[in-house]
Amino acid sequence: MTYCLGIKTRDGLVMASDSRTNAGFDQVNVARKMHTFEAEGERVFVLLASGSLSCTQSIVTLLDREFREGRGLAAAETFYDAARAVGEQVRRVALLDREALERDDYRFNVHLILGGQIRGQPHELYLIYPQGNPLCASDDSPFLQIGECKYGRPILDRGIRFDRTTLEDASRYALISIDSTMRSNVTVGPPIDLLVYAAGELRVSRYRRFNGKDADLMAIHSQWEAALRKAVQEVPEIDFNPPPDDP
């Protein structure tokens, strides 16, 4: 299992992902799920991947090959075209591998989040489905999740606002969202990759990987739990009406 999320605000993007993969109940591995494609000053793309590791690795390999050859993401005229270029590689890998996978009862289930910017255009955030079709984040729905989403969604629903959330606060929300997921689901785990992209920057300049013992990540975990308990204690007491008299 995995958990990845992208947050779009007026000021830019925050992208975050865990690194835990498993090939069975007794085999847990670590693999990076965040990938970057950068032509500094021209375009930058950040790709987050969820699903079969072998399939996502194939997709990333094909995208990287195209990018180095000046095709695909490197040649997309708009960000929508870039999302479609990713979708084309999803469908290509599906054609190569889906039949063999499903013959052995493995479902082709790849989801991707693509964020970034092309020079002269606004920053964007897209979700690409296993069928290759893209969905764009909006001002009203400014974050996208893939993988184990449910545990980390409530904090995003309550806190993220496109026009009011700063990139610094969005980074905190992202880490709390992932920490909440790790707290409730052992199939999501560190290292945590976090990337912050400021609109118009057109390069990757703020990236950090948090291992499981990272002091800042542990501080966020403990402070968030303490603040949550304190907030619950400050909620007004529940007034229970006395039971009605028996007839």
Results as ranks from 00 to 15, higher is better:
residue 184 S to I: 00
residue 191 P to V: 04
residue 210 F to G: 04
residue 186 V to G: 03
residue 185 N to P: 00
residue 175 L to Q: 02
residue 214 D to Y: 05
residue 194 L to F: 11
residue 208 R to T: 03
residue 189 G to W: 08
residue 210 F to M: 10
residue 192 I to A: 07
residue 202 L to C: 04
residue 211 N to H: 14
residue 195 L to K: 01
residue 205 S to W: 02
residue 180 S to Q: 14
residue 177 S to H: 06
residue 212 G to K: 10
residue 182 M to T: 12
residue 208 R to S: 00
residue 178 I to K: 02
residue 192 I to Y: 06
residue 210 F to W: 09
residue 177 S to E: 06
residue 185 N to S: 09
residue 197 Y to V: 01
residue 180 S to M: 14
residue 188 V to G: 03
residue 190 P to R: 14
residue 215 A to I: 14
residue 184 S to T: 03
residue 210 F to P: 07
residue 195 L to H: 02
residue 185 N to F: 15
residue 183 R to Y: 08
residue 187 T to K: 09
residue 202 L to G: 02
residue 189 G to M: 12
residue 196 V to A: 03
residue 205 S to N: 12
residue 206 R to Q: 13
residue 194 L to N: 07
residue 208 R to D: 00
residue 207 Y to V: 05
residue 195 L to S: 03
residue 204 V to G: 04
residue 203 R to E: 11
residue 198 A to D: 00
residue 207 Y to M: 12
residue 203 R to V: 07
residue 205 S to Y: 03
residue 188 V to N: 02
residue 211 N to Y: 11
residue 192 I to P: 05
residue 210 F to Y: 15
residue 206 R to L: 11
residue 192 I to W: 06
residue 200 G to K: 12
residue 213 K to P: 00
residue 186 V to E: 04
residue 181 T to L: 09
residue 198 A to H: 11
residue 180 S to D: 13
residue 196 V to W: 01
residue 177 S to A: 15
residue 185 N to D: 15
residue 200 G to Y: 06
residue 214 D to E: 08
residue 178 I to Y: 02
residue 200 G to N: 07
residue 201 E to M: 14
residue 179 D to V: 09
residue 212 G to H: 04
residue 198 A to P: 03
residue 181 T to I: 09
residue 193 D to E: 12
residue 180 S to A: 15
residue 194 L to A: 05
residue 203 R to L: 11
residue 199 A to V: 10
residue 198 A to E: 05
residue 215 A to W: 08
residue 211 N to V: 13
residue 215 A to C: 06
residue 197 Y to K: 10
residue 180 S to P: 00
residue 199 A to W: 08
residue 193 D to G: 03
residue 210 F to A: 05
residue 197 Y to M: 06
residue 183 R to L: 12
residue 176 I to M: 13
residue 186 V to A: 14
residue 190 P to Y: 11
residue 210 F to L: 08
residue 180 S to G: 10
residue 185 N to T: 07
residue 212 G to L: 07
residue 175 L to W: 02
residue 197 Y to P: 09
residue 193 D to S: 14
residue 214 D to S: 11
residue 202 L to F: 00
residue 175 L to A: 05
residue 207 Y to F: 15
residue 179 D to T: 13
residue 181 T to G: 02
residue 204 V to Y: 01
residue 210 F to T: 03
residue 189 G to N: 07
residue 203 R to Y: 03
residue 177 S to M: 09
residue 193 D to A: 09
residue 183 R to F: 09
residue 201 E to P: 03
residue 207 Y to L: 14
residue 178 I to M: 14
residue 184 S to W: 01
residue 184 S to Y: 03
residue 192 I to M: 10
residue 201 E to G: 09
residue 180 S to L: 15
residue 176 I to P: 00
residue 202 L to A: 02
residue 190 P to L: 15
residue 197 Y to L: 10
residue 192 I to D: 06
residue 191 P to W: 02
residue 196 V to E: 01
residue 175 L to H: 02
residue 178 I to E: 04
residue 214 D to Q: 03
residue 192 I to Q: 08
residue 179 D to Y: 03
residue 205 S to P: 04
residue 195 L to G: 01
residue 179 D to Q: 12
residue 182 M to F: 10
residue 176 I to D: 01
residue 184 S to C: 10
residue 211 N to Q: 14
residue 185 N to E: 12
residue 215 A to Q: 12
residue 210 F to C: 07
residue 186 V to Q: 08
residue 177 S to P: 05
residue 212 G to I: 07
residue 207 Y to D: 01
residue 192 I to H: 06
residue 181 T to Y: 01
residue 215 A to K: 13
residue 211 N to M: 13
residue 212 G to S: 13
residue 191 P to A: 08
residue 201 E to A: 13
residue 175 L to C: 08
residue 188 V to A: 07
residue 186 V to P: 00
